[in-house]
Design a protein around this nucleic acid. Structure first.
Lengths: 234, 234
DNA sequence: CGACAGTTTGAGAAAGTTCAAACTAGGTGG
DNA sequence: CCACCTAGTTTGAACTTTCTCAAACTGTCG
């Protein structure tokens, strides 16, 4: 178990108009005049690993845009077990359910040091009634989240653990085969297996040369091997 | 393997204004004049078990509203294995991704004889630009789908098969403990286990008196027992 | 040098898979 | 009406995967 903590108040006003990744984010399609409709501060913050954006059950007062880093969405079962249901990278939006006046479904926790913008619910509501441009983006976000959820289910909860791990790595890997290697506990929560078994599977991958971990927390993978493990061809 | 078939053209024009379950469906919030914006026929059809509403990969020309019965969304993995990712009951909407001009993500197949309305994409697009009333409902639909997807993952892909089956039954059961009992193949695809093992688990439930199957395809369950199995208390 | 949290490893038990065979229950055609 | 298909289900037995619990190991921090 890791310690969790609620972060202090957010600081630093963001300037959406000149956001570096503007074409990636929720406000991608907004025009100049639209920004004048924003009357509440959008705050930007750099968050350490294990910081909590929001917790399941809190009522949703804001949406969040991930600008850099990685955020995990954690869902708890009544019995206490937990699963990581999604990973959010740069450009992704967390807490969409806030728009419906619902409490947050998950807890959102930083997995890799992240730069995150906090957008008050009212800002999006206001923009949403004033400009239709936002609707398309909102739909895209919902759709993207749903697609990831479905892929997560079929990809990371189906088949043997080695297949699941291979699919996860293929998913988070860049062109050079470089990927973050999460803690064994997080891996277990993503793949739906125990921490110990996640550890064993990583160890097996290392033994077979499918994966190397030069610095702790990152790894270099053999894409071809992973692809063939993922499909159970080998 | 079951036979699948594509259905012939849809017939019968629906009259949304006097839909029997109007407050449940996508058009719940529409006002009288809004209906005049509908210039393409919305077709209603009764579909047999195994009928296909649409197949994964087809480009999405329409959305579907389930009025009665039950529809499953099936997703295929590259290797050929499949998982049922969601169940849609009365009031639910299938094929929302059509609104984004995307091909369908899943195949939608009738699980229990169903009455379904087919709404051409253009109708929703038109309404969506003309009346803001639809937006709320669309958001609700996306949110509902996403929530079900997440619950499906944490509930039906986590823990032992007996827990998963118990959670599924609790989910589809009515007040009296009456629930549909799906084919063992479908059960396997929902719980992420083999057909054989789904069968064994059902058999075990019957032996322990947790569940009776008076007529094939439906069952009566002991809610209390299911709840305690679901949480691994027993 | 501990202390501590996370990881790895071992070994036995439990859960799930595989393959094959036996067993339904509903049609269909003679 | 019955014999015979067929598709789906159930069961058995050997095997593989995963879990559990416990112990050993690793690296970081005061």
């Amino acid at each position: 178990m890791k310690k969790s903590r609620i972060d202090a108040a957010w600081t630093g006003k963001a300037e959406c108009g000149r956001c570096g990744i503007r074409d990636l984010v929720l406000f991608a399609d907004l025009a100049e005049p639209d920004f004048n409709l924003i009357h509440l501060p959008i705050e930007e913050r750099e968050l350490d690993v294990e910081s909590v954006l929001y917790s399941a059950g809190q009522d949703g007062s804001a949406l969040f845009t991930v600008r850099t880093g990685l955020v995990k969405l954690v869902q708890y079962l009544p019995e206490g077990t937990l699963r990581i249901v999604r990973l959010l990278g740069p450009g992704a939006t967390a807490g969409l359910e806030a728009l419906l006046g619902q409490p947050y479904e998950h807890s959102a926790v930083v997995l890799q040091r992240a730069l995150v913008c906090r957008i008050p619910r009212q800002v999006v509501e206001r923009l949403s009634t004033e400009t239709p441009r936002l609707h398309g983006q909102l739909m895209q976000r919902w759709h993207g989240a749903l697609k990831q959820a479905d892929d997560w289910l079929t990809g990371l909860s189906t088949g043997k653990t080695s297949q699941r791990l291979a699919r996860l790595l293929l998913h988070v890997m860049d062109q050079d085969g470089n990927a973050p290697l999460f803690s064994r506990e997080d891996l277990g929560a993503m793949l739906g297996v125990t921490t110990v078994h996640a550890s064993r599977t990583v160890a097996e991958f290392k033994r077979n040369g499918v994966l190397r971990e030069p610095k702790s927390g990152r790894c270099i993978c053999d894409r071809a091997r992973l692809e063939c493990i993922a499909t159970a061809e080998c």
